[in-house]
Amino acid sequence: MAFWFELVATGLITGGIYALVALGLNLQYGLMRIMNISHGEFLMLGAYLTWLGHTVLQVNPILFLPVVALALFALGVVVYWLCFRRIIRTAPAVEVIEARSLLVGFGLLFLVQNAAYLAWGADLRGYSFLTEAVDVGGARFQVNRLVVFAFAVGASLLLLAVLRWTLIGKAVRAMMQSPTGAQLVGIDTRFLHPVVFGLGLAMAGVAGALLSMVYEISPGMGEPYTVTALIVIVLGGLGSALGSLLGGFLLGLVETFGMHYTSPSLKMLLSYAVLIGVLLARPKGLFAR
C-alpha cells in the first residue's frame, strides 16, 4: 500500500511540474496561436536566477519565487513586444502565425540557450535545499519535493482561478472562443497579448525555480520540458487550461508507472506512444468536450 502510495505520489510530483510548464505554453497558444518552442529556455532562466539568488545573494529559494515570477513576466512582455507583436499583426492567417512563431521560437531557443552557455558554461550547477526526508503516510519523501509539488499545484490552481473568476481571465477566455467577438465588446488585445505572454513565461520561470531546488541545472535543461509540455497540451487539448493540468498529472503518472513496470529506458517511448495514441483516437485532446 505504502509502495503504491509512493509511486502515485512520485508521479503526481513530476506531473505537477509538467502541468505548470504546460499551462503557460498552452495559454500562449490558445490565445495567440504562438507555439513558443523556446518555452523551456525561460524555465532554465528561472532556474539560473534562483540558483544565483541562492548562491550569490543567499536568498531562500522559496522567498525568491515572486522575484523570479516578476522578472520573467517582465521579460515576457519585452519578448512579446520585440518578437511576436509584429508576426500577429502582419500574418494573413492563423496557420502563418503558427509557422512564423515557431520559427521565431527556434531563434529564441538558440539565442537564450547559447547565451546561457556563454554566461554560465556547460557544467551542472546546484545547491542543496531542504534535503532531509519526512514520513508521509508511510512513505518517505524529501521535503524539497513536497515543497515543489505544493507550489507547482498552487501556482497552477491560482492561474485556473484567475482565468475563471477575474475580469482579465474572463477576457482571455472570451478571446480564445471568439477573437472578433471579444474585440467587439472592447477587449484590448494590445494589452492582453503581452500580459498573457508574460504570464506564460512567469509560469515557466517558477517551474524552473522549483526544479532548481531538487535537480542540478544546466543551460540545456529546458528543451526536454518544452517537448513534454507539447505532449501535455496535446493530451489535454490545445487551449484548455484544465486539460493541461489533468494532462500533466496523467503524463507524470504514466511515466512513473511505466518506468517502474517496464524499464527506465522506455520512459520516452511510453510518453510518445501515449501522445500518438491520444492524437489518433481523440485529436482534440482527452478532455475536450
Binding site: 497558444y29 496561436r33 507555439m35 492563423v94 496557420e95 503558427e98 515557431l102 517537448v227 507539447l230 505532449i231 496535446v234 490545445l238 529506458s265 522506455l266 520516452m268 517511448l269 510518445y272 506512444a273 501522445l275 500518438i276 492524437l279 489518433l280 485529436p283
Partner: peptide, 28 residues
C-alpha cells in the same frame, strides 16, 4: 493516411512525436 487530417500545431507535434517514437523504439 492516419494523421494528415490534422493541421497546424497538431500535425507538427505528431510528426515530431512519431520520429521520436521510432528513435526510442530502435534504441530499445
Amino acid at each position: 493516411a492516419a494523421v494528415l487530417h490534422l493541421r497546424g500545431a497538431y500535425f507538427a507535434v505528431i510528426t515530431f512525436g512519431l520520429g521520436e517514437l521510432v528513435r526510442h523504439g530502435i534504441t530499445y
